[in-house]
Amino acid sequence: MELLDRALDEALQRAGAGREALRYVATTGFGRSNYPERDLQLTDVTAAAHGAAHLFPQTRCVVDIGAQSSRAMKIEPGGRVREFKSNDKCAAGAGGFVERAARYLETTLEAVGDLSLHGEAPVTISSVCAVLAESEIINHVSQGESTENILRGVHNSLAERAVLLLKRVGIEPEVTLVGGMGRQAGMVRALEELLGLRINVAPEPEMANALGAALLAKRRLEKAAA
C-alpha cells in the first residue's frame, strides 16, 4: 500500500496535479485489491487488452509477459477481451526467470536484451519449469557456452511458452507485446522469429496495463456523467 501511494504521488507530481484532481481510480495487477480508495478494480487481462488496443488500434492478440506471469489474449477492436489463456499457477514462461538467469550469468537485467541479440548459436533449454531450466543454464555455463548464446536460448524458451498460449487463443495479427519483458530486444526478436510476424511493442511496456486501467477509469467516469 505504501508503494502504491508512492507511485501515485510520483505520477501526480510529474503530471503537475494534486490528489484532489483525481476523479476516478482504477487498480489492476497482483495487488489490485490493496488500495482502499479505488473506484474500480480490473483484472490484468482486461487492463492489458485496453492498454494494447489504445497504443495499437489494429491489435487482435496481446501477449503480456511480466515477472511472474505470462498471458495471451484475443481482443476485439476497442480492447474487449474475447478469450485469454494465462499461466498464473507456475513460473514457467514468466520473466522472473530472466532476472535469475542474469544474476547467475553476472550481468544485469538491462543488458540481457542486447546480449541475447548477439547469440549466434542459441542453446536449447528443454525444461519448461523455471527452476529446472535454471539448472540447465548452470550446465551450459559449466560447459563453456557463451552468455549471449545462453540468453538467446532463454528468450527462445520464453517465446515458446508465450506462443503456445497464443496458439490456444488463435494467432491473428496484429500482435502486441506488453509487460516488462517488452524492454528486451532479444525477447522481441525471439517472439517475431517464432511467430513469423512483426509484433508491436508498447513503448513503455511495463506501463501498458496501468494505461489500460486509466483509460477504463476515464471511460467509466464519462459514462456515469452522461
Binding site: Q68, K89, C90, A91, A94, F97, C129, A130, V131
Partner: peptide, 13 residues
Amino acid sequence: RNPVRLSTVCTVF
C-alpha cells in the same frame, strides 16, 4: 496440527 493450504506447488511462487 492445522496444515496450511498452498495456493501453488510452483517452486518459484
